[in-house]
Computed example of a mutant assay.
Amino acid sequence: MRAIALYTGGKDSHYALMKALEEGIEVIGLVTALPKSIESWMFHAVNIKWTELHARAMGIKQYFIEVSGIKEREVDEFTEGLKKLMRDAGFDCLIVGAVASKYQYDRVMAMAKKLGVDVYAPLWGRDPYEVLNEEIGKIKFMLIAIQAYGLTEKWLGKIISEENKNEFINICRKYYLSPVGEGGEFETFVIYSPLFGDREVKIVRYEKVWYSTQYVGYIVIKEAKLELLTS
């Protein structure tokens, strides 16, 4: 099996990639959508270009496909990009980090059917709280976008860890939020993973945008780099 991972730089797509490699699946590359609109229904848009640091740290080739960010049209555009990539790179499986979003899962399955390839979705159908707990135990990630009542500005740019996970989970339960963010409540960006070896992503400079009356905000990474882990 030669697989390509649908990769956003967020915790779920990264964790699915980890699972694939643990299973011995040959991963020939990462493929990342570049939406022209931050209103994309299907793909991450905030800080997506910085995923190239992940690819470099893991030593995995990365491919980018530009899409409009317009609902449904972007799915067709991405599928066309995958068709070309399949001819050039040759793969027979898509790795996806969907957990409970039927919207996302159904569209990935439709893409795979059109391409005639398999889908590896190791997180699909699992308890989202269990998935979140596993991810917190294995990788380090921060919230880079929020759009949900209950998540205040203090969570924007925060790393979710063992120290604050109970508070975060309690908020998700209280306000009926998806703990993995699949309802669009938040987006994440991986800072460290065992797949990065002895390096991690260092965010040197960023700007924060927050709309307090809407509980919506995001950070714009201005400068980031890979650096050696400190003991």
Rank of each mutant, 00 (worst) to 15 (best):
K84S: 07
L85H: 02
E80D: 15
V131F: 02
R73P: 00
I95W: 08
G59K: 01
R87D: 05
R107I: 00
K83V: 10
G90P: 09
A57P: 04
F91D: 14
Q104R: 01
A57E: 02
F64T: 08
L82A: 04
A112S: 07
E134A: 05
P128R: 14
Q104W: 00
L85C: 06
A98Y: 03
T79Q: 02
G90V: 10
H54K: 05
A112E: 03
R73H: 11
V117I: 03
E66G: 12
S101A: 14
F78Q: 06
M109T: 14
V67E: 01
N133L: 13
M86I: 15
T79F: 01
K61I: 01
Y103W: 12
M86K: 15
V117N: 06
P122L: 06
Y105P: 03
R107E: 05
Q62T: 00
M111L: 08
K114E: 11
Y103V: 00
E77R: 13
G59Q: 04
K102A: 12
F64R: 07
Y129D: 04
F64M: 05
D88R: 03
G125H: 02
A55N: 07
Y129V: 13
V67W: 01
A112K: 05
E77M: 11
P128C: 11
P128S: 10
L115T: 11
A57K: 09
G59M: 05
S68A: 08
K102I: 12
W124S: 12
D106N: 15
D88V: 05
R126N: 09
G81D: 15
D76T: 14
A55K: 04
G125R: 01
M111D: 11
K84W: 04
V117D: 01
E52A: 14
Q104A: 08
K71F: 06
G116H: 10
A112I: 00
V99I: 14
L82S: 03
D92P: 10
S68N: 09
N133F: 07
R87G: 07
D106P: 06
K102W: 15
V67G: 00
M58W: 13
Q62F: 03
Y120H: 15
F91H: 01
D118H: 13
E80Q: 13
E72C: 04
E80R: 06
E66W: 06
V108D: 10
E52I: 15
E134Y: 03
K114F: 09
K84H: 07
R107Y: 12
G59R: 02
E130P: 09
D88M: 09
I65R: 15
Y129M: 08
V67D: 00
R73I: 12
I95R: 01
S101Q: 11
K84A: 10
I65D: 00
M58T: 10
K113D: 15
Y129C: 05
E52F: 07
Q62V: 02
R73S: 07
L132G: 14
V96R: 06
Y120T: 00
L94Q: 08
